[in-house]
Design a protein around this nucleic acid. Structure first.
Lengths: 235, 235
DNA sequence: ACCTGAACACCGTTCAAGT
DNA sequence: ACCTGAACACCGTTCAAGT
C-alpha cells in the first residue's frame, strides 16, 4: 500500500543516514530508546539492514559521537589562546545541550573517536601557540579533563533529563523539602540562597550557564597564572 | 548433595548481604556482569529472591553507591578548610580506584543517594566553617562538580578498565602509533614528553595521581584566592 | 502467607535458509 | 551474491501457580 510505495521511493540507507537517524532518535526519545530495533523501525528497515553500515552498536555510538563533536565551532582565527580555548569550550557546551545523551555515551565508550582526537589535538595546538611548554600543556589538558569537551560535570545534571520527550517531568522548582532541609542544612542554605537570584535561572534554582563559566574561568585564570610564571613540573 | 547442604546452612539473605555481593561482583567481574540473574547465582539464590530486598535494579545500584560512598574517610578534625577538603577528596579518589564502576554508575543514575547528600552537606559545612559565604560556597560546589566525589573526569580513563578480570588487556604502554602521531602531532608530543618521566607512572605514560592533584590544587588555590578577596557574584 | 518457575516483553547479534 | 526471517543467548520484571 502507501507504506510499500514509500519504502520503494525511500532514499537508500547509508552510514550517514543511519547515524543521523540515530542522533535524532537519541535527541528526541532519549538514549534509552536507542536500540538497533527501534532505529531500524524509524528508518523503515529490517534491523539486520543496519549491520551493513555499522559493525555493531558500539560502532554506531562512536559514529553518533563524531556527528556531535563535528558540530563544535572551529577555532577563532587570530585570537589569543585564552579566547580560543574559552570560545571553543563554550561552543562544545552548547552542542552538548542539544545532545544531552552525548556526555554519558562518550564516558561509557571510554575510547576516543577520530573527531575527538582532532578536537583535542587542535586544543593542545592552541596552547602551544599561546606559549605553553609541552609539559604544562600536558598537565593543563588533564586538569581540564572532560570539561574541555563542554562537559559540565555536575553531580546532578538537570540537562540530562531535558532530552526526554513524552512524559512531561515537571520537577517542582527545587526548594528543599522540609525534612531534607533538616538533615542537610548546609545544602538547604545553598539552595535557598540560589533561588532568590534573578529570573535568568535555567535549572531548579541554579543558573547553569553562570556556574559553567565560573568553573571554566577559575581554571583558565589559574592556568594563565602558571603560564606567566613559566611553571614546570620539576619545580 | 553438598550444594544443598550448603544452601540450607547459608546465612539468610539480607539487603546488606545483597549489596555487598553486588559490589563484589562489580569490582571483580565488571559492572557489565552485574545482572540480577548473575547476582542471584553468586548468592546461591533464585533471581526473584532478590526482589524481597531491593525494589529493582536501580535501587540496587543506589544501595551499592551508598556502600561505596560510606567508605570515604570522615573529615579531619581540627584542620583548616583546605586540608579538610583536600584530604577528603583524595580519600574519595582512593575509594573510587577500588570501585572503578562507581563513577559511571553515579552519573548514569543521576540522582543523589542519602550517603552522597550527607557527604556533600558536610563538604559545604567545611567551607562555611572556613569562612566562605553561602554564595561563594555554592559556586565552589558547582565548580568542583563531581571531582568533589573523587572523580578524575579524564577523557580516557585507564582506571575504568582496571576492574575487569578474566581477559587480560595488555594495552601496549602508550607510545602513539606512527600514523596517529602524524595526524595528531600535538597529542603525540604530549604523550612522548610524558613517557620520559620517572618510573612512578600508573597509566600508559601519565602519572594519574600527579594529574589529579595538579587539577585539584589548581582549583583549590583559585578558590582560596576568591575567598581571600571576599568574592561575591554581584561584583 | 510465602516462595518461585514460567512467562512476558524486550535486547544485540548469529546464522542459515530463501531469493 | 545479496537479503532477511527465525533463532540464540541474554536482559529486568510480572504473575500466577504451587507449597
Amino acid at each position: 500500500m502507501a507504506e510499500q510505495a514509500q519504502a520503494l521511493r525511500r532514499t537508500p540507507l547509508s552510514r550517514d543516514r543511519v547515524l543521523r537517524a540515530a542522533v535524532a532518535l537519541a535527541d528526541g526519545a532519549g538514549i534509552e530508546s536507542l536500540s538497533m530495533r527501534n532505529l531500524a523501525l524509524d528508518l523503515g528497515v529490517v534491523p539486520m539492514a543496519l549491520y551493513k553500515h555499522v559493525a555493531n552498536k558500539d560502532e554506531l555510538l562512536g559514529g553518533m559521537i563524531d556527528v556531535v563533536v563535528g558540530e563544535i565551532d572551529p577555532p577563532l582565527p587570530d585570537a589569543d589562546w585564552k579566547r580560543v580555548i574559552r570560545a571553543r569550550i563554550l561552543s562544545a557546551r552548547e552542542v552538548l545541550l542539544r545532545h544531552p545523551w552525548a556526555p554519558l555515551a562518550i564516558e561509557s565508550r571510554n575510547e576516543a573517536t577520530p573527531a575527538i582526537l582532532d578536537y583535542l589535538n587542535s586544543m593542545v595546538g592552541a596552547l602551544r601557540d599561546g606559549g605553553f611548554s609541552t609539559d604544562l600543556a600536558h598537565h593543563v589538558m588533564h586538569a581540564m579533563g572532560s570539561r574541555i569537551l563542554g562537559f559540565s560535570q555536575e553531580l546532578f545534571d538537570a540537562s540530562r533529563r531535558a532530552g526526554r520527550s513524552g512524559t512531561a517531568d515537571p520537577e517542582p522548582p527545587a526548594a528543599f523539602p522540609a525534612e531534607a532541609a533538616a538533615r542537610f542544612p548546609h545544602l538547604a542554605a545553598i539552595a535557598t540562597a540560589a533561588s532568590h537570584d534573578d529570573a535568568s535561572v535555567l535549572g531548579p534554582g541554579c543558573d547553569d550557564q553562570f556556574e559553567f563559566e565560573f568553573a571554566l574561568d577559575l581554571l583558565l585564570n589559574g592556568i594563565d597564572r602558571l603560564r606567566q610564571q613559566d611553571w614546570t613540573s620539576s619545580g
